[in-house]
């Protein structure tokens, strides 16, 4: 099973807090902008939920 991840890029301010919680999903590129993998294995769920919790802009969502 996989989970689908969505970041509302109109909210995201590229603070990068998610990167520490789910480094295989979220990263900042060379321009300090957020990039992410939109689909991941279920085993990433706990990390992604932790990333959701620490996002200052509350811009990360798991799509049902």
């Amino acid at each position: 099973m996989t989970i689908k991840i969505e970041v509302d890029m109109t909210k995201c301010q590229h603070y990068g807090q998610c990167v520490f919680e789910a480094p295989d999903i979220f990263r900042l590129n060379a321009d300090d902008k957020l990039e992410y993998t939109a689909e991941a294995d279920d085993s990433e769920l706990a990390n992604v939920e932790a990333a959701i919790d620490v996002c200052p802009m509350q811009a990360i969502f798991i799509v049902k």
Partner: peptide, 11 residues
């Protein structure tokens, strides 16, 4: 102010 990757590197 800005320079996210640099700030995060110090974390």
């Amino acid at each position: 102010i800005g320079m996210r990757t640099t700030v995060m590197g110090y974390r």
